[in-house]
Simulated assay, not measured.
Amino acid sequence: MVDKKFDNDVAQFCAITGASAKDARDFLKHHKRLDVAIDAYYNNPNAFSGRRKTDSSAPSTSKLSQLFDKYKDPDGDDITVEGTIKFCEDLEVDPEDVVLLAVAYELSSKRMGQWTRQGWIDGWKNVGTDSISGMKDSLSRLRTQLASDPVYFQKVYNHTFDFARSEGQRSLGTETAQAFWGLLLPHGFEGGALTKKAPSDDDGDVKMDDGDGWREEYNQWWFDFLTQKGGKGVSRDTWVMFLDFVRSIDTNFSTYDMEGEHILTSFRMNDDSSSPLGSAAWPSTIDDFVEYAKERLASGPH
Rank of each mutant, 00 (worst) to 15 (best):
T255M: 04
V234H: 08
G231D: 07
F245C: 04
T251A: 15
F242N: 02
F245I: 07
G230T: 10
D257Y: 00
V240D: 00
T238E: 11
Y256G: 02
G230L: 07
M258Q: 15
V234S: 07
T251S: 15
T255L: 08
T251D: 12
H262C: 03
K229E: 05
I249T: 01
M241W: 07
H262I: 06
M241A: 10
T238H: 04
D237K: 13
E259I: 02
R247K: 12
V246W: 06
T251M: 05
T255E: 12
M241T: 01
S235E: 10
D244L: 00
N252Y: 13
T255C: 09
R247G: 10
V246E: 03
T238S: 08
G230S: 09
V234P: 02
N252T: 14
F242H: 00
E261G: 05
F245E: 03
I249P: 01
E261L: 06
D244V: 01
K229Q: 09
H262M: 09
M241K: 02
G231H: 08
S254T: 14
Y256K: 05
D250S: 12
N252V: 11
Y256W: 14
H262K: 03
V246F: 05
V246G: 03
D244K: 01
T255Q: 10
K232L: 06
M241I: 04
W239P: 04
F245M: 05
K232I: 05
L243C: 13
M241P: 01
V234W: 06
R236S: 10
K229T: 06
M258N: 11
F242L: 13
W239D: 00
D257G: 00
T255D: 14
D257H: 14
S235F: 11
R247E: 06
K229C: 00
S254Q: 14
W239K: 02
N252G: 12
E259T: 09
S248R: 06
K229A: 07
F242V: 04
T255I: 08
W239T: 00
G230W: 05
I249C: 02
W239V: 00
G260R: 13
D244N: 14
F245S: 02
H262P: 02
N252E: 15
V246S: 08
V240K: 03
F253I: 12
R247F: 05
R247Q: 15
Y256T: 07
F253W: 07
S235Q: 07
T251W: 00
I249K: 01
E261W: 03
L243E: 06
H262V: 02
G230I: 08
F245P: 03
I249N: 01
S248A: 11
S235T: 15
I249D: 00
S248Y: 01
